[in-house]
Write a protein that binds this DNA or RNA. Sequence first.
DNA 1: GAAGAAACGGAATGGAATGTCAGTTTCGGA
DNA 2: TCCGAAACTGACATTCCATTCCGTTTCTTC
Lengths: 209, 209
Amino acid sequence: MTAEVAGLSRLERRKAETRAEIIDAAFTCFAEQGYHATGIADIAARLGIGHGTFYRYFENKRDIVEHVVDDLIGRIVEALGADNAPDAVSTLEDYRAQTERIGTVLARIFDEDPRMAQLLVSAIGIDDAMRDRMLELFEATTPITGAYLAHGVRLGYLRADLDVEATAFAINGMILGSLLAALRDPSPERQARLSAGIRAVMYDGIAAR
Amino acid sequence: MTAEVAGLSRLERRKAETRAEIIDAAFTCFAEQGYHATGIADIAARLGIGHGTFYRYFENKRDIVEHVVDDLIGRIVEALGADNAPDAVSTLEDYRAQTERIGTVLARIFDEDPRMAQLLVSAIGIDDAMRDRMLELFEATTPITGAYLAHGVRLGYLRADLDVEATAFAINGMILGSLLAALRDPSPERQARLSAGIRAVMYDGIAAR
DNA sequence: GAAGAAACGGAATGGAATGTCAGTTTCGGA
DNA sequence: TCCGAAACTGACATTCCATTCCGTTTCTTC
């Protein structure tokens, strides 16, 4: 019997590798041309494999886009999760610094690979189910931001009368806006400026003092 | 010669009417099923006309969606334009009231006809050109909000150090967020709460005083 | 009310994209 | 080296739609 690592034969490892390659190629195609304009043949051609082979790895077009999106969301969550937890902060200054850090991470993610933002946005138009999924993803970010806010209210460095959910929504809306802006002008300078603008609104409001 | 009103024969008026009916039917179909899932036959069937007839009024599928989107944007701009101009405001209280008014108008537009929001969102997925157009539409709102802000800075009731463009972007991001929220839960209560949350962030910031 | 013009409708066409399958190649094991 | 199994391939059948086309109906005008 040949050597096996983690219970996977060489063949199985090769298959997993091809699978990942297909996901990656599909990711690129979908991001570049959009879901509907991409054919299975395009994805296969990019890898130099016959498009029949595609069907040995994925059920159909819908199946692959599902995996591509999962993969993408996983990567984003991982990149953000590397940051601190909500309760690692105890003063307004800490929080402000953390907001800035998160903004920087987000900007870098989408700056390094603009296809990510493009895919996320164009995924909205795939079909009803995927649109709902994207909206759910957006809504799912509310409790996360909300957790930071609730923590701050509890410790007293954020306003006691904050409507945590509504505020979390508003903040995430601003972030979404800057993500959309990045689609059209991804320059880090612009991102930094928008990010600073968001923080200014958050911490100081817009009214004169 | 028969009577003509405004230079239009009866026939011409009838044609214009049919055209408008087609735009309306297409609007409904696109909003309900999405662009790609809608066939020309669906649009024609909704009006009880043969789908060959469609092509007597519009070049092709792309042509109709263009008109549908134009029509939609026109209606939104009109509804908002009914409100006051940026320089009709001179105090923070005025401005706050106007913000609230605008929020209410927006909420009502999308509450009365949720298809509007659905179409705007799903238009993103039609193709590259339409996605760009939607992003442009979003960006085009920045100078409008910016004009209000600049006016307020000039009159001194908004912070002198405001980065007008970045702030306008942030505010519009929050509005976009609540629009997306409306897609999943269009209840007026929720909208009102989010709208209030946005105003709270804008005017008071989130930090404790 | 007749004739010509314009509008209508839906069967037919063309093309594109998906998914299948039978023949071919590759690969691991003995 | 050889064998059998598994993977690969791309031509093909199928489906689905946008668009066209022409025979039929409706309208206008005299």
